[in-house]
């Protein structure tokens, strides 16, 4: 299929591994899905320490279930990515360990206290879910199918995240203040979650033309703000003055003062060049290495017992 045909026929779940897709499409889809898969891994690892630090048994159970879900989502997504035939799952995991693999800005920052947990588990997950819901209509069928399962599970994550926020913001004044401090720190990063505005987005046009993305960064951020700012306010969180945010009541629309956001920092972070990036990547790489023996044992078992020729995807 040539690129013009792809653009003409692009529709939700239109293309699958049996279609002969042009290299431009396969590369763009791989880049996008690999980024998504990497983000699931890095988000899971960021939250993992809070299984131990959870303040109650209920939270511990829910948090371990959530981290397990995120790693499962990564597996689904690496499968969807490798079905494009550009990179194998091993290759993508190696790239992540070597600092080549890119992932969401929010997962490059350290998370030290329980007060920060709802920033990820409610706001970042909520933002992610907003975006993922639109990707059910992506043109690469295996990606859209993965989104069906991811979105099925994510409702628990977001509601559990909100439940933590609600609990903290209805408890002691000291807890409320610490939660507000965490919010002040995370809010600009959350605003940058959807990436640069449309005019500065490098990949949007192509991805939209071939049906990989169905909404722009600006539209997604707008929809997120409309839903989540009232929630923050409901629990008594104050929206920081900086970065500036102007509400246009007549249009029910928030305008973010772009100059107030540190896009240099954003691009440093998302190029894996920040201090936090290095720490997160290396700590995951260490843990991946620590369980190498499990993968090796399984590979050995598979080679011993297999009667069919292994496929590239395995």
């Amino acid at each position: 299929m040539d690129l013009d045909t792809v653009m003409a026929e692009a529709a939700p779940r239109r293309f699958s591994p049996k279609d002969d897709m042009p290299e431009e499409y396969r590369k763009a889809a791989t880049r996008m899905i690999q980024f998504h898969a990497n983000s699931e891994v890095m988000g899971g690892y960021l939250e993992k320490p809070f299984i131990r630090q959870a303040p109650s048994l209920d939270r511990k159970l829910a948090f371990s279930a959530k981290v397990q879900d995120e790693i499962g989502h990564a597996q689904l997504l690496y499968r969807a990515a490798e079905s494009l035939g550009v990179k194998s799952r091993d290759q993508m995991l190696d790239e992540l360990a070597e600092g080549e693999g890119k992932f969401l800005n929010c997962f490059h920052y350290p998370m030290d206290s329980w007060y920060e947990v709802p920033m990820i588990a409610f706001f970042v997950d909520g933002a992610a879910m907003r975006r993922q819901a639109t990707l059910k209509r992506a043109s690469w069928e295996p990606y859209a199918h993965a989104m069906d399962k991811v979105c099925f599970e994510e409702g628990f994550h977001v509601k559990h995240g909100e439940d933590i926020l609600r609990e903290l913001m209805t408890s002691s004044k000291a807890n409320q203040e610490r939660t507000q401090e965490a919010f002040d720190e995370w809010w600009p990063r959350i605003l940058q979650f959807f990436g640069p505005t449309n005019d500065k987005s490098t990949h949007h046009d192509f991805s939209a033309k071939v049906g990989l993305k169905t909404m722009t960064n600006d539209e997604l951020r707008q929809a997120f703000l409309n839903a989540y700012i009232p929630k923050a306010e409901k629990y008594g969180l104050e929206i920081p003055d900086d970065p500036g945010l102007i509400y246009h009541e007549d249009e029910d629309r928030y305008e973010v003062v772009e100059e107030d956001l540190d896009w240099d920092q954003f691009f440093t972070v998302t190029k894996n060049a920040s201090e936090g990036s290095e720490r997160q990547i290396l700590s995951r790489a260490d843990r991946q290495e620590a369980v190498d023996w499990v993968r090796e044992a399984m590979d050995g078992w598979e080679r011993m017992g297999s009667t069919t020729t292994p496929q590239a995807a395995d």
């Binding site: 909520g126 879910m129 907003r130 993922q132 819901a133 979105c151 099925f152 599970e153 994510e154 409702g155 628990f156 977001v158 509601k159 839903a227 989540y228 009232p230 929630k231």
Partner: peptide, 10 residues
Amino acid sequence: ASFAKEVADS
């Protein structure tokens, strides 16, 4: 969950 359609759907 009703504040966000995707959460309510899930």
